[in-house]
Design a binder for these strands. Structure first.
Length: 201
DNA sequence: GTGAGGATGCACT
DNA sequence: GTGCATCCTCACG
């Protein structure tokens, strides 16, 4: 199966976010392949997007997003959870796609071991959860996901056939209203591994 | 089933 | 010091 290459990730972020749905995320851990189909993504597009970390400028943390596409942008949130993004678009334009949820398809036992006391449905149905299940952490920050080692994405024949839904991104209450409303979250319609939205307060 | 509250580390005014 | 691109546990019913 073809590994998604740098040309793929260099496309516009919304195209990448949509096109990633249905593709296979592969993580190799201790010689074992852990695999999940991408079912939910979000795009963070350029310095004008106030939801994007890079809207604050070019800093040590966001430097990677200004670089070439196809590298993992990983950061720690709430002191506990890692988020997996793939850098998109051309050098100098800060953008990335967040992988919010995958449907586990291989290596389930290892994922269960990484997230004990959790049902299959809750293994990878959120950005922090999937990083735990696949043991994705800061050590993979900057990793070239087109290298075909440790962590990469593979093309499937599924992607083009999927029914896709889109809507506003989640958890970005700090952003400007128009950016909060932008429909830059994509998910596979009716897939039960799409993340559960935060409860209304 | 629902909602409140807390955990916890790091980048950055 | 502040505030997160989140998730889990517990109480309630």
């Amino acid at each position: 199966m073809a590994i998604l290459n740098r040309e793929f990730f260099t496309q516009p972020s919304l195209t990448v976010a949509r096109s990633l749905l249905g593709q296979r995320l592969v993580r190799v851990l201790n010689g074992r392949r852990l695999e999940g189909l991408v079912v939910e993504t979000e795009a963070y597009v350029g310095a004008q997007d106030s939801a994007n970390h890079a809207s604050k400028g070019r800093t040590a943390r966001t430097e990677l997003m200004f670089g070439p596409a196809g590298h993992a942008y990983i950061y720690l949130i709430y002191g506990m959870y890692f988020m997996l993004n793939i850098v998109t678009e051309t050098e100098g334009f800060p953008a990335a796609v967040l992988i919010r949820a995958v449907e586990p398809v291989a290596g389930l036992e290892t994922m269960q071991a990484n997230r004990p006391r959790v049902s299959k449905r809750n293994l990878t149905n959120g950005p922090g959860k999937l990083c735990q299940a696949l043991r994705i952490d800061k050590s993979l920050h900057g990793w070239d996901v087109t290298s075909g080692q440790k962590l990469w994405l593979e093309a499937t024949t599924l992607s083009a056939k999927l029914e896709v839904a889109r809507g506003p991104r989640i958890g970005i209450g700090y952003a400007q209203a128009e950016d909060q409303l932008a429909p830059w979250r994509f998910w596979v319609k009716d897939n039960k591994f799409v993340s559960t939205p935060p409860r209304a307060s």
